[in-house]
Every structure is written in structure tokens, then in C-alpha cells.
């Protein structure tokens, strides 16, 4: 579903990604962990070209990202993204946030889009918040609306960029629950997170990144119980 080969990314002279290779299969839930500054968010953002790769190859669902013939907007329709800071549209209600892209990008009719948006709000447990503006929602609620907004495009892949890092501790659970359900339904997911409990419980595979490369990867069991690389060991010993 996602194939990354020898991905390099520079910000000016700073090399943030130093040759990342990864294969992610359909319905797989891959959790990316690592210290801050390790390049994990940049890696994720390269997958829908919010950051442009300096060199290397990224293929999403058979389509190469860095090919000039590729219309990036067509790929982004299929790749949902959830941000650390939610990025809901503050001038639109929860319902309108969700409807906007299906109507404008997919050309869905208003009624159909509204009905689907309400279904999605129910799915994330916020059916009563349809007409509420983002600034009246808690962080956890905003993030759940943001997930619903991404799902409204019926993406084949969902990217999560530290979705719980900006939340108060008591709100982390409600967002993780939504993500767990999504994983159970068979969504292909790439999740950058510091939630090791989530990684252990939901992840099919864990990638540990440090200093711009994937240092170690394996099942959550292997990574958390028996890390082989000293850098993985040192990172896990600090946070677990």
C-alpha cells in the first residue's frame, strides 16, 4: 500500500531524513516511535507530500508521489491526515468541517454529505455536537471531529501525526478509542505517537526512528520486550 525507498529530506542544509525505507501493507497498523527531532513527523508528512522529499521514492497505492504526472490532490483524497493541533476550520461548525471536502472535492450532494457527516459524528461519539463551532469543543472532541473529517473522504490510508500530544491527559483515552475502532475495522494506519500503550495494543508493527533513519522495526512484542539496538533500548528505558 505504501512503499518508501531511500527517502532523504533536507531542510536547507539540515538532513532530517537520511535514507528511510519502509513497506506498509494494506490494513496494517504501523506505529512510528522515537525521540523528538528523530524525523518521524517529517517522514509521515512526506507520505502525503505536505513535505516534498529531497530524493528517494514514495509509492502510494501504486502511484509514485514524485512523478510530475501525478496529481497530488488525487492522492491526498485517498490519504487522510490527523494533526497534532487538530487544525479544524474555526469558521465552520463540526458538521460543516466534515462536509466541506466531500462536497467540494468529491462533488457529493449536500444532503448525502450531511447524512454521511452525521453518521461519522455518531461514530466518534459526537452526534450532539454537529452544530457547534470548534472553539466550543474540548481538545479531545476537536480531535475526534478532525478524525471524522478525514474519514469523510473515505481514505484508504490514515496518517496520524502525534494525535494525542496536544491533549490534556484525561482526553487522550477518547481519541485512542476512536483510533482503536478504526484499526479494528481494517484501516491502513501510520501513527506517529508517544502512546506506547496504544502501540503495544493496536500496532501490527513498530518502527523506531532516531536521527533520520529507522533504527529498528518489529512487532510491538519484539520492540518493547526485547529491543536489540542500544538506541532503542536507551529510548525505551527513558519513557517506559
Amino acid at each position: 500500500m505504501i512503499s518508501v525507498k531511500n527517502l532523504h529530506k533536507y531542510f536547507g542544509k539540515l538532513e532530517v531524513l537520511k535514507g528511510v525505507d519502509a513497506q506498509i501493507a494494506e490494513k496494517e497498523v504501523v506505529v512510528v516511535i522515537g525521540p523528538s527531532g528523530s524525523g518521524k513527523s517529517t517522514f509521515l508528512r512526506c507520505l502525503n507530500k505536505l513535505e516534498e522529499a529531497t530524493s528517494g521514492e514514495i509509492i502510494i497505492d501504486g502511484i509514485p508521489l514524485n512523478d510530475n504526472a501525478t496529481n497530488i490532490n488525487m492522492i491526498r483524497r485517498e490519504v487522510g491526515m490527523v494533526f497534532q493541533r487538530f487544525n479544524l476550520f474555526p469558521h465552520k461548525t463540526a458538521l460543516k468541517n466534515i462536509e466541506l471536502a466531500p462536497i467540494k472535492v468529491r462533488g457529493q450532494g449536500r444532503q448525502e454529505a450531511e447524512q454521511k457527516a452525521r453518521e461519522l459524528l455518531r461514530k466518534v461519539g459526537l452526534e450532539d455536537k454537529a452544530d457547534v463551532y470548534p472553539d466550543q469543543l474540548s481538545g479531545g472532541q476537536q480531535q475526534r471531529v478532525a478524525i471524522a473529517r478525514a474519514l469523510a473522504m473515505h481514505p484508504k490510508i490514515m496518517l496520524f501525526d502525534e494525535p494525542t500530544s496536544a491533549l490534556d491527559p484525561e482526553m487522550v483515552g477518547e481519541v485512542l478509542t476512536v483510533m482503536k475502532n478504526l484499526a479494528r475495522e481494517g484501516m491502513t494506519m501510520v501513527v506517529v505517537t508517544h502512546e506506547m500503550g496504544f502501540a503495544r495494543e493496536v500496532g501490527d508493527r513498530v518502527l523506531f526512528m532516531d536521527e533520520g533513519i529507522i533504527v529498528e522495526e518489529g512487532s510491538p512484542e519484539e520492540i518493547f520486550s526485547n529491543p536489540k539496538n542500544p538506541r532503542t533500548q536507551s529510548f525505551l528505558s527513558k519513557i517506559l
Partner: peptide
């Protein structure tokens, strides 16, 4: 905030759509 256009673009909106609606 840049996150606004990133959110719009990540949903598949073109630059013009993102400007116009968001």
C-alpha cells in the same frame, strides 16, 4: 495558521479551493 491550509490540502483540496473555502 499554516495548519489550516495543510488541513485543507490534506483533504485533497486544490490551492484555490483551500484559499476560497478555508
Amino acid at each position: 495558521d499554516r495548519g489550516q491550509s495543510e488541513a485543507a490540502r490534506s483533504l485533497g483540496m486544490s490551492q484555490t479551493q483551500s484559499m476560497l473555502y478555508v
